[in-house]
Amino acid sequence: MKLKIEFGGGLELLFLNQRTHLIVIPSTVPQGDKNGQPGQPVDINFLVHWLKDNLLKERPELFIENGTVRPGILVLVNDTDWELEGEGGYQLKEDDEIVFISTLHGG
């Protein structure tokens, strides 16, 4: 499954200093993957772990906390607040655009 991932608010610094990433991930949780129920459709929590394992280069604690996105990061799913879409449990679809923006850049 193809996805477009964007990082903002300084988060891109953790991801090769690149704002936009076009990625391909499995559409169901692979066998033996402990980031979800194998065989189930993948959700944002799965994506977050996938990004940590495959793209994140440093300081995972700035991106992920208690198994999901750290507080202080705004997540948009196709331009809509992920709180309207079921947060970490949102089931990803082909060509979804997921944006992660850190709010922690201060005043």
């Binding site: 903002g8 608010g9 300084g10 202080g72 705004l74 948009l76 607040d81």
Partner: peptide, 18 residues
């Protein structure tokens, strides 16, 4: 801060970062 962040994103401001 969440609203500020959405403003930055939707109005495409580039934030230098503190």
């Amino acid at each position: 801060l969440k609203e500020c962040t959405a403003w930055v994103w939707w109005h495409q401001l580039s934030v230098v970062g503190k």
